[in-house]
Design a protein around this nucleic acid. Sequence first.
DNA 1: ATGGCACACGTTATAGCGTTACGCAATCGG
DNA 2: CCGATTGCGTAACGCTATAACGTGTGCCAT
Lengths: 137, 137
Amino acid sequence: MTSPSHPELTKNQTLVLKALDKAEGPLSAYTILDRLRDDGFRAPLQVYRALGKLQEFGLVHRLESINAFVACCQPHGHRHEMTAFAICRTCGKVDEFSDMAVEERLGEWVRAHRFKPAKTTIEISGDCADCATHEHA
Amino acid sequence: MTSPSHPELTKNQTLVLKALDKAEGPLSAYTILDRLRDDGFRAPLQVYRALGKLQEFGLVHRLESINAFVACCQPHGHRHEMTAFAICRTCGKVDEFSDMAVEERLGEWVRAHRFKPAKTTIEISGDCADCATHEHA
DNA sequence: ATGGCACACGTTATAGCGTTACGCAATCGG
DNA sequence: CCGATTGCGTAACGCTATAACGTGTGCCAT
Ligand SMILES: [Zn+2]
Ligand SMILES: [Zn+2]
Ligand SMILES: [Zn+2]
Ligand SMILES: [Zn+2]
């Protein structure tokens, strides 16, 4: 599938996506809320609703292991492919990548067990190269 | 069947592990708390401390995508291997499995990027065979 | 036009998840 | 004995997410 077509983003969705784009790492929903106070945001639900739609469009990913959100590294998003994340617990940097072999193996398990997958989460938490060498601890 | 209580386990840890073992599916920390009221549990921290240790011992896994915990399917636990979970969002059943090919591929990415992994999360959320056929959606 | 519908939005309140901070008691190796 | 470690209990708090209700707007078939 090439770029899925998204409808025009609403004002709130645009604001949330911009906030995530500007950020250097993942943001929690409440951090997003704080950063959008000046744009009129008042309540968590405004953030969560926008995030929900952006995730549907494949423009934003939720990092389950840290309750945070990142903008997709591919500017037009991707709804169907499996994605993995390496999350540095020291500096917070996130690398998004995908691996066909992993996707295929998990697909095999799923077929063998007649499981109907809806969402797959792959997250490696640890220390990135910079932080691992620098801290040396 | 239940472990013949691990000698190193404290009273609270044993209680929490038994609660998870008896349960048919994953339990949230607060559900565990509720089920252990009669055993003297009063505060979330009692549960979280026990869960932390049990995770260290590899006897319990945390399911990041649903904020819940399950007893390891291998009665003596496993600290080092990578584990994947298939979680049915309808009936709540969880299948724990591991796949060497997946482990190897993620290991390759990690080595190539000099990332130092601490914990890897692989969770497939969807509908199990029973629920998928039964609901026929 | 007008009623019905779908959708985005705004607000309040509440549910659910997890940690910080403090103090007490038992244990173990000097 | 002493300090260090570990587990335990309690209270208070903070973070994460959703429920419930109401508003307004565009769109479409009647
Ligand atoms: Zn992406
Ligand atoms: Zn880092
Ligand atoms: Zn296990
Ligand atoms: Zn099921």
